[in-house]
Every structure is written in C-alpha cells, then in structure tokens.
Design a protein around this nucleic acid. Structure first.
Lengths: 349, 349
DNA sequence: TTGCGCAAAGTTATCGATAACATAATGCTG
DNA sequence: CAGCATTATGTTATCGATAACTTTGCGCAA
C-alpha cells in the first residue's frame, strides 16, 4: 500500500461504503431485488441474478450486518462470557463453541469476567445490547443481582457452560464437579492413602472448584478421613501458587501422603516443590490434578489428573443453542464424562 | 427461575424489548431527550434527567447498540483475528487487547483463522460487515488476494499483531522475529556449540516462525555453520510433534548438540525424548524454546527460551487503535523487546 | 374470453436509535 | 423593554437493510 493510500485511510477519508441502493442502481433493479438475490430467497430470474451479482462484485459491495440484523430482528451474534481467555481450559471450550458456530455464519462476542460477578454483569449488559442470538455463560461463578435481572429480561436463549451440577438457565453443558471430587477420593482410598490434602486458590470465586473440593471432603469424611485444605483467595490459580501452598502444607502437615490440586498448573507447581524437598512422588506422596491439559505431560512427569472434554463441552453448548434457536425440543443439560487418567504421580494398581 | 418462566423464554415468547420511545412516553418527554440523558450529552435540566433515568430504570430499558451504531455511524466493535484461541500465546495477546478496550466500552469480535488464509479472508469479510471501529490481524500469515481486496476497501484502521519485521496495514505491534533468530544463534555460538538443529512444524503457514528460522540459519551460516532443519507441515506445533521430530532428528544426526524449537511446547516434547533416550541436557545437548510461556517452568526443567511480552503486545496494539480512532499522530509500529531467559536446558556461562 | 395461478419484480413501512436543525422558554444587558 | 444569547426540549430526516404486501405480466385451463 502506498503512503498516500495509508494516509487517506488513517485520516478517516475512508473509501465510501457501497450500499444496497447503489448496487440496485447499477444493476437497474430495486433494492429489494438485490437483497433477495444476495440472500438467495424469493423468485428472481436467472438473468437478473447474474446482473445483480455482477454489479455487487464490481462495486465491491459488502453487506451491513448491523442494518440487516436490526431490520430482520434475527441476529447471528452469539455472546460468550468466560472467566479468562488466557486460561487454556476456557479457551478450549471457546474453540469448541467457535468450531460449531462459525461455519453456520455466527459471530462470537467474547467477554472475560475474571471471575468477578460485577464485571460479568457489565458484560452481560453490554452483550445483550447487541441483541445476540444466544448467551453462553460460565456456570461456575456466583451471579450478581444485576446479572440475574438482566438475564430475566433477556430475549434469547442462555446456556451455562462448564458446570452441570446445578441446572440454571436454559441448558447446561459440562461435567459434574461433584463426581470429579468423588473420583479423586476413590483414587486415593483405593491406594490406601489416608492423609489427604487439597490445594487450591480463589475458591471464593470459582464455585465449580469449590464443589469438587466439598465432594472430596465429604467422600473422605464418609471413610472416616479428615481432609486437610490449604487454600488462599488472593493468589492466582497457577503453578507458583501451587508451589507456595504445597510448601506451606508440607511444613504444617508433614504426614500428608496424597494431594489433590485445583488444576494441573497448580499441581505442577506443587510437584516442583516436592521434588526439590526430596519427597519422592508417588512413593512417598501422591498428586492428582484436574483438567487433563497438555501441561499434564511434562518432560518426566505424567500427572495423574481428571480429563475434562473441554472442546466437546463447547461444541455441545453451541449445538444446543442452535437447536433452541430452531425451537427444537431438547433436554436440560449435557453431562460431560470425566476420565481419571493414571499418570506417574500416583501409584498404578 | 420457575419452569413456566423458562418455558416462556425458550418458546420464544420472550419478554418484549423496551425501546427509547417507551421510556420517553413514560417520562413524558421526546425520544431525543431520553437519548441525550442516557448518553449524557446536550443540556437537559436536572429534573428531567431524574425523571428519564427513573423511567428507564423502571422499565428495565436496555439500549439497542445495533441501532445506535447504525444511526451514529460510530462503532464500538473491534474485530480481532488470531490463528488460534486455544494457543496460549495468541490468547494472551487477546487478553491484552481486551484489557485496554473493554474498560472504554469496546466489544471485541474474535475470529480464529487456524493459519488458513482463506478462512482469514472469510473472517475479515464477516467482521467488516459489522462495521468495526478497527481490525486487528495476526501479522505472521500469508494473506489471500480476497483478504487484500477487502482490506483495501475497509473504512477502519487495521493493525498487525505479533510481527514487526514487515510493516503492513496501519500499525504493527510485535517482536522482530529476525532478531529472535539471531539471539538464539548467538546463544548457541557463545556456548561453543556448532552442531545446531532447528525443529518446527507448520512453517508453511507461520511466516513469523519462518523468519526466526531463516535468521537463525543465516546467522549460523555467517559463522560457517550449516543449520540442520527438521520440520514438517502436517502436524500441529505441539509437544507430541516436538518429540516425534526430535527422535527423527537424533536418529539421522546423532552429532547434534543444540536444538532450537519453534515454541516452548515443542521444546518440552523434544526434551521428553532426549531424557528418555538418555541424552543429558544441557551437558550433551542444549535446547532453546520460544515464547516464554508458563510451560517453560516445568517440574525439574526450566527451559531456556525467548520471552515475548504477549500481553503488552495486545495492549500496545489496542492503544494504537484508540489513538488512530482519535486521529492522533503516531508511529508506524511498536517493537516488542525480546529477552533470552536462561534456564537449565542450556549451559549458563 | 374470462379469470386464476404463478413467477418476477417493486412499494411502503419499519427496525431503534442519532444527527442536525428548529423552536420555545428563560435570563441578562443596555 | 427590546434584543439577543443561552438553556431546554422537540421535529424531521436518516442510517442500511428486511418484512409484508402489492403490482405486473404471462401462460393456460375452463
């Protein structure tokens, strides 16, 4: 591009936009005919179609979707709000959503709530103002009163992602975090471990993680075991925090022989401390993560973890949305199957 | 929410939308007055403001941004197209973009091109049809003719992300991939390594990675060293591919004593093979990744890598966009500084 | 020939807001 | 108290499309 062209564009002397009316004038027909040809609806003669397409192409016509949506009252925008884009877990759910929606001509609006209910409410408001065809929300967070009020007034389907324990909205797609907690408890108990700890962060915000934690705790309690919990609310759910909390944990409770971490990243942080402290894994102490991210397979470590089909969750949610849009009958939820993947951080039995 | 309410919403007997006109009627003023009050422009008496706000609140008024944008011709949508959402690298750039744009009332449209120029062109078309205030594109890909044509007709600023070597569009924010390649070459040479290899994938699509590769190759050539390249184009740029290619590499070229990987994930895969094959790192063979993702710090491994300030790239790009929107004078690009982070996969000197 | 049915186009109203201009009420100056 | 700026509000046209209906023309059966 030449400097002059760039200047022109930057200086907002932009190429003027071509409208339907101009295409119509060029093709010698009415706006409506052009609209019908380009949307491929109605009866238009082959000859006219050709002329219109030719004119549209020559002018470089690009439809204005805002006008189209406003007028037809049918939107192809889908709003998605996740806690964090750069957390691979939610990003993969998002990829699944996109994989289904994009090929059908839908655009996704992405919002990042940072696990903050008031940010989430703001995002819901902003997104609803674009009249989306649907709203996908993360299920694992508390919802503010504002958000509830907005949702009550919505006029599109809303779907809950990531959590299937508590059905809310029109559909839920995700795992049962309670059963995840139970799976881990069973895994530890099967291996004869009885000094179990949980390491996590930001549990005040992440209801799904809290549910896993509680299920683990109560499953162990049923076996007469008291879960030791080492959590904090003001540090991120990342490796460094896992390392820090594990160090604290082992200082205060050196007898611990099994740890469940909030996620794989924290588990790797914890393992890094255990390795440095000379505590052999899994002989002396076992570790279990959550998510089954690519992190789980490190250089020498294959973390025992619970694999969650993240992309599939996104796909199912998107498919459900499409079905609701077509007013098809459908169930209330889709429960993702969980799989405990045996690595080398717990004993194989 | 009661079952009846849910039924009502699902069955598309949705709560009717409240418009400006209804708020105006309720407050006993004209639409225009309501519009001015809610946008906080013009001179409206305090008393009227109160009445209008009260009415809007009671009716649960939510503006229709589509109508607003169409009418004012000023959009608050920013379109972003990245190769992959679930690749943490681009996701973090995106987070940076959002961090700047969201607080200023902009919404981001996200597209995933999968490194495919024709998908990218489709996305550009779809996004431009929403009359965005700006367009952010990944710089490290080939661009199709269609895409070029669309970009030439755009009437918003367009910014290139992630690559600063070749200036295109109105602004570029990213690192110089050439200097990254040179940095790695120097790192190897400083350590007396002379049997160097490169391991990567999908180089046909990723121009930035290609540029790093070429810079490494030519820097080494200048020192009289011939770079061995082990790449493939049909496997993903992930750990498993890194492992596979490293195995091939070491079979064909057992003399290799230093490997640069396309990214950190592939490096970890390669390290996992080297460890299994009993080749000590860094004594026998050195490894350098690229990106400086959290992956780089594994349990026992701290990967030597080049840290790229990903979030900052997104922030700078978004700031540049805002400046262009306000027609402020500005430079053509922002070059991200790169830092080679010494880990324990190359010798410290 | 009448008139019905269908294909192929066009007309009008509308979607929900904002820009730009117009008007009415108020205050202040000389 | 005229004259004019200022404040407060309303009117009209418009953004770029689509829905719903109307019109025109033609073929063909009764």
């Amino acid at each position: 591009m030449s400097i002059e062209e760039r200047e022109k564009i930057v200086a907002s002397e932009r190429p003027k936009t071509v409208t339907l009316a101009e295409v119509a004038a060029k093709a010698g027909v009415s706006k409506m005919t052009v609209s019908k040809v380009l949307r491929e609806v109605g009866n238009i003669s082959e000859e006219t179609r050709q002329r219109v397409r030719q004119a549209a192409h020559e002018l470089g016509y690009l439809p204005n979707s805002l006008a189209g949506t406003l007028s037809s009252r049918r939107s192809r925008i889908v709003a998605v709000i996740i806690p964090s884009i750069s957390d691979i877990v939610y990003a993969e759910v998002l990829s699944g959503v996109n994989a289904i929606l994009r090929p059908r001509g839908f655009q996704t609006f992405i919002g990042e709530s940072q696990f903050d209910p008031s940010v989430e409410a703001d995002l819901i408001r902003a997104m609803l103002s674009f009249q989306p065809a649907g709203l996908l929300l993360n299920g694992g967070m508390a919802r503010s009163g504002d958000a509830e009020a907005l949702l009550a007034r919505r006029n599109c389907p809303a779907i809950q992602l990531w959590d299937c324990d508590r059905h809310a909205l029109d559909f839920s797609a995700g795992p049962s975090h309670e059963s995840a907690g139970r799976l881990v408890a069973k895994h530890f108990l099967d291996r004869g471990l009885r000094r179990i700890a949980y390491v996590g962060a930001e549990l005040d915000k992440d209801l799904s993680a809290r549910r896993r934690h509680l299920a683990l705790k109560s499953s162990l309690a049923a076996a007469g075991i008291d879960l030791v919990s080492m959590t904090c609310e003001d540090r991120p759910r990342q490796a460094a925090t896992g390392r820090f909390l594990t160090e604290q944990l082992m200082r205060m409770h050196p007898e611990i022989d099994g740890i469940h971490f909030l996620n794989d990243a924290m588990a790797l942080g914890g393992l890094s401390y255990l390795h440095q402290a000379g505590l052999p894994v899994p002989e002396r102490i076992s570790a279990v993560g959550f998510n089954g991210t690519s992190l789980a397979n490190a250089v020498r470590t294959r973390l025992t973890t619970i694999d969650v089909p993240r992309t599939e969750i996104g796909e199912k949610a998107a498919q459900a949305l499409l079905q609701m849009t077509e007013a098809q009958p459908m169930p209330d939820f889709w429960q993702a199957r969980l799989e405990l993947v045996q690595g080398n951080t717990t004993l194989a039995i």
